[in-house]
């Protein structure tokens, strides 16, 4: 496990396992170094700050537990969100870490997720007549209501579960789509947006 390429992956895997058992802040570099069989200094070399570790661990957990379904139409997007929220309820500690990682300053510049790119593509394809500003704020609002952050906030502050959070998402998505200038959306998008 001391191969140069595998070390960070092994550290992240060791951290990911612990997320369900304890608060992320309690996971020490020392215990990770012991688990992987390397020195603590090596852990620091790969993850100079805890934000680096947080980001990488969240990415690994996302790939492992919450891999987003590919979608190319509105029904597919909504289904993907429903599934994601459902998976978050199944693994709340890991989902909360995702939400937390999304709210720290990006470790390496601005990073658009696969999900955000897919939503943007969907909006652009369905409503080519929408001006760039409306397109961008529509896509960003949809993503923000489909995010782990929305799930986490609704769960902590409102005691809501996946099913209800999905309904919140659907109402918000419906209003956001309705807010676009009249005639911009083809009928198919609006039909897809009805609850």
């Amino acid at each position: 496990m001391t191969d140069a390429n595998d070390t960070p992956t092994a550290v992240v895997a060791a951290a990911a396992v612990r997320v369900a058992e304890t608060s992320f802040d309690e996971i020490s570099y020392r215990e990770l170094s012991t688990a992987v069989g390397i020195s603590e200094r090596t852990v620091y070399r790969h993850f100079p700050t805890r934000a680096h570790l947080l980001t990488r661990t969240a990415l690994a957990l996302e790939a492992q537990l919450f891999a987003p379904t590919v979608f190319t139409d509105w029904a597919g997007l909504h289904e993907a969100v429903a599934q994601r929220f459902g998976a978050f309820d199944q693994h709340p500690a890991e989902a909360a870490l995702l939400a937390r990682a999304a709210s720290v300053s990006a470790v390496s510049g601005y990073d658009s997720s696969f999900f955000a790119a897919s939503v943007s593509a969907l909006v652009e394809e369905t409503a080519p007549g929408l001006n760039p500003r409306d397109r961008r704020r529509t896509a960003s609002a949809l993503c923000w209501f489909a995010s782990a952050g929305f799930w986490a906030r609704c769960r902590t502050a409102f005691g809501a579960e996946a099913e209800e959070i999905y309904r919140f998402y659907r109402s918000s998505a419906r209003e956001v789509l309705r807010a676009a200038p009249e005639g911009t959306w083809p009928q198919t998008a609006l039909v897809g947006s009805q609850a």
């Binding site: 960003s140 923000w144 952050g149 409102f158």
Partner: peptide, 21 residues
Amino acid sequence: AALCHLDSAGTWVALQREFGM
């Protein structure tokens, strides 16, 4: 839930990070 979500620092972070706004 929607309004509380929007009225948060997280909104600023998400729009800045994911959309480079």
